[in-house]
Simulated scan of single mutants.
Amino acid sequence: MPLLIENLHKHYGELEVVRGISLQLQPGECFALLGPNGAGKTTTLRCVLGHTEPSAGSIELCGLPVPARAREARAKVGVVPQSDSLDPDFTVTENLLTFARYFGLSREAAQARVPELLTFAGLEAKAEAKVPALSGGMKRRLTMARALVADPDLLIMDEPTTGLDPQARHLIWDRLKGLIAQGKTIFLTTHFMDEAERLAHRIAILDRGQIIAMGTPREVIAAHIEPQVVEVFGEWAGHEGGAAAWAAAHAGEYAQRFEVSGETAFCYLEHPEALLAHLAAQGGLRTLHRPANLEDVFLKLTGREMRDE
């Protein structure tokens, strides 16, 4: 089993940041750990990799106990950290060769591996370029390629597409789908719900150090939220207050549940026909009707308020 976590706890003094997490990864699956800032995602990853010692519980990484044999376990894992941590004085090829030597590959084996990694990252034309000459997306792809130097079966990725433009994100998604198709196991954290829905076989939502939902994206959506969403926004003809005023007056008549965030009312319900007919007769209001998604669940379970780290 690539990863087994049982009843993991971590506290710093009186503050408990991880509170009884248990999960296991199956070979060949992509598992996404989701949560707001401060939920305990990074602490969990640090415990998994042996960089932080748990206060209680047990971890097996690639069949080895952590932290007792963390160094051996990490040698079996490819890690993509939040920051790229590439050597700016080295070329793309030199970064790959140097990292390969850290994993004990011979010079000949490392040199033979580089062309395949450059192709994976789409960086063949940048092989001799130094890191500062690369775009953000190129650096991220190089960091992913670097994590693959020893051809690990398990990849741990901490927010792999944060800070990238949509084109770079989609390119990295394509690379990750390719790895999953090859049978690699991926454990990732992400703030992007669409990323988790596209890539993950299973997800867990972590909040205040505890897992509050787990399953396939479809299972989690079906278990925790109404299936249809109607977003209402714009001005309400003849009334002040726009969609918020409309929601206060009428949303409860049609929706099983509704929320107002900023200038938009979110109506959650099973059968939207009556609501949509009513809204069609309200001048000025605009609507967006869509299926419920993972972001709706995430916001319902963890709240819409901003969190400090």
Rank of each mutant, 00 (worst) to 15 (best):
P2M: 01
L3N: 00
I5G: 01
N7D: 15
K10E: 01
H11T: 01
H11A: 13
G13L: 03
G20P: 06
L33R: 01
R46F: 06
L49D: 14
S55F: 02
I59Y: 08
A68N: 13
V77G: 08
G78W: 12
V79W: 03
V80K: 08
S83D: 15
S85Y: 13
L86F: 07
L86P: 11
E94L: 09
L96R: 07
F99C: 09
G104T: 02
L118C: 05
T119V: 13
F120Q: 08
A127P: 04
G136Q: 04
R140N: 08
A147R: 08
M157H: 01
P160F: 00
P166C: 02
P166F: 05
D174I: 02
L176S: 04
A181G: 07
I186A: 10
I186K: 11
H201A: 14
R208E: 09
G209W: 06
R218I: 08
I221W: 07
A223H: 09
I225E: 12
E226P: 03
Q228Y: 07
V229A: 13
E231D: 11
F233A: 14
A244Q: 07
A245M: 03
A245K: 12
A249T: 14
Q256T: 09
F258M: 07
E259T: 12
T264Y: 05
F266L: 12
E270L: 09
H271Q: 15
H278Y: 15
E295A: 13
E295P: 08
D296T: 07
K300T: 13
G303K: 01
